[in-house]
Design a binder for these strands. Structure first.
Length: 405
DNA sequence: TCTGGGGTCCTAGGACCC
DNA sequence: TCTGGGGTCCTAGGACCC
């Protein structure tokens, strides 16, 4: 029995953050379209978060890369203009795109804020996949005011690779018979899931193009790189059977981390930051109506070394105080006196739905009290905004840990 | 004014049980 | 007394993505 070939589109917003900020500015009456100048969306350098989040085509032509420091970008592009990001607005533009795409299929996987996979297999009728791609491209541009790249293929990997070819505002196909001419000729660094650590190892093996990688012996790749070796080899050969995950998925973990305005070696201060992070993380956790089983604390030292300790806690919980107590223990266990810390992070993992947790018959009276306390605080935050209520003596770390609605 | 913040998945080693 | 493995859970760290 022959299996029906999947019909997949990958939609990728061109310079998403920069385009969306450009649109917002024009809507507010600004005359300058920042897509037309040497510009980036960047983090706040005064908060030691100065990296490039998105770049205009003109900045790209000067050699500016995403994720490099704004300092470095400016060396290459002295007239660079830097703009702040606005995540609330980005979420809205992302939703606008999603809602437009829903008119074509409900099998949409939101891969990130600016990328979607569409499974069109059952929604094509008599039309061709590529014609749908062009139609979507035109409509997004006209109705939403920004451009997208669309990859057209028979699996997700090939669609994603295709959408990454030439930009912006382009539709590219990458069918099986085109792999050799369109993909194997590319540098191996272009392959999805091939990062900066693996690349030098491949260069040592004289692998320069995706084609070189595809022609390696599969078993040899597994022997050398384990599971990752298999994935690399399969991707290089255009093999990917993963489905478009269109169902809304619950998060597997929730975390907040913050780069401090200056390196800190005062443990009390670190604990205060940790408490603020815990409040935010558990607030989000409770909004999902979930409990956590694992607490994880991350520290980054001033020379950029990362450490993390985690602990599986006895019972699942979303209680601020309980999670903070575990977090504080982890911090104390890990923190060496006198070390200067650049970043503090808190995550909860191994999440479960609150409803699925068997409620203990012996729920502690004190636990109930704590849960009530969280509820009351959450309600106030929901009604009057996250910032409306805070613990005494904690205002400073509230400022450091950027508060969000 | 050098290097973000949010995730997911994998690996290796140790503890513990059978 | 010594010598085993397999399986599972837990933890620390790392690679990669946008």
């Amino acid at each position: 029995m022959e299996k029906k070939q999947k019909q997949i589109l990958h939609i990728d917003v061109n310079n998403a953050f920069l385009s969306w900020t450009a649109i917002d500015r024009l809507a507010e009456g600004e005359k300058l379209d920042i897509r037309e100048i040497e510009a980036v969306i960047g983090g706040d350098e005064s908060k030691r978060a100065g990296i490039v989040l998105a770049k205009s085509m003109k900045a790209k032509q000067k050699g500016v890369h995403t994720a490099e420091t704004i300092y470095q970008a400016r060396l290459k592009c002295p007239n660079l203009q830097v703009f702040k990001g606005d995540y609330k607005s980005y979420r809205k533009h992302s939703n606008d795109l999603y809602n437009l795409l829903l008119q074509y299929t409900d099998k949409i996987e939101r891969f990130s804020i600016d990328e979607c996979f569409l499974d069109m297999t059952e929604y094509l009728g008599n039309s061709r996949l590529i014609d749908k791609a062009f139609e979507i491209s035109k409509r997004v541009k006209k109705e939403l005011g920004f451009t997208v790249n669309i990859g057209v293929a028979h699996n997700k990997l090939l669609a994603k690779m295709a959408s990454d070819f030439t930009k912006p505002d382009k539709v590219h196909t990458l069918y099986e018979e085109e792999i050799a001419t369109k993909m194997w000729t590319l540098p191996v660094s272009e392959l999805f899931m091939l990062g900066r650590k693996t690349l030098p190892k491949l260069y040592n093996m004289k692998i320069k193009t995706i084609g070189d990688l595809a022609r390696q012996d599969k078993n040899e790749m597994v022997k050398r790189f384990g599971k990752h070796g298999l994935i690399m080899w399969e991707y290089a050969n255009g093999i990917d059977n993963s489905p478009v995950n269109y169902l809304e998925e619950k998060p597997k973990g929730i975390g907040n981390s913050v780069t401090l305005p200056m390196d800190i070696c005062d443990k009390e201060k670190l604990e205060e930051i940790l408490l603020t992070l815990t409040e935010q993380v558990t607030y989000r956790l409770r909004k999902y109506n979930m409990y956590a089983n694992v607490v994880n604390v991350q520290l980054r030292t001033k020379d950029f070394k990362d450490f993390s300790h985690q602990k599986r806690i006895g019972k699942s919980t979303s209680n601020t105080k309980e999670i903070y107590n575990v977090a504080k223990d982890l911090l104390n266990e890990m923190y060496k006196k006198g070390t200067f810390i650049r970043l503090v992070g808190l995550r909860v993992d191994s999440l479960v739905d609150k409803d699925e947790v068997q409620l203990s018959l012996f729920t502690d009276e004190n636990d109930k009290k704590q849960e009530k306390l969280d509820e009351v605080v959450d309600k106030i935050k929901q009604k009057y905004g996250y910032n409306s209520i805070t613990r005494a003596g904690k205002l400073h770390s509230d400022e450091i840990v950027k508060l969000k609605e």
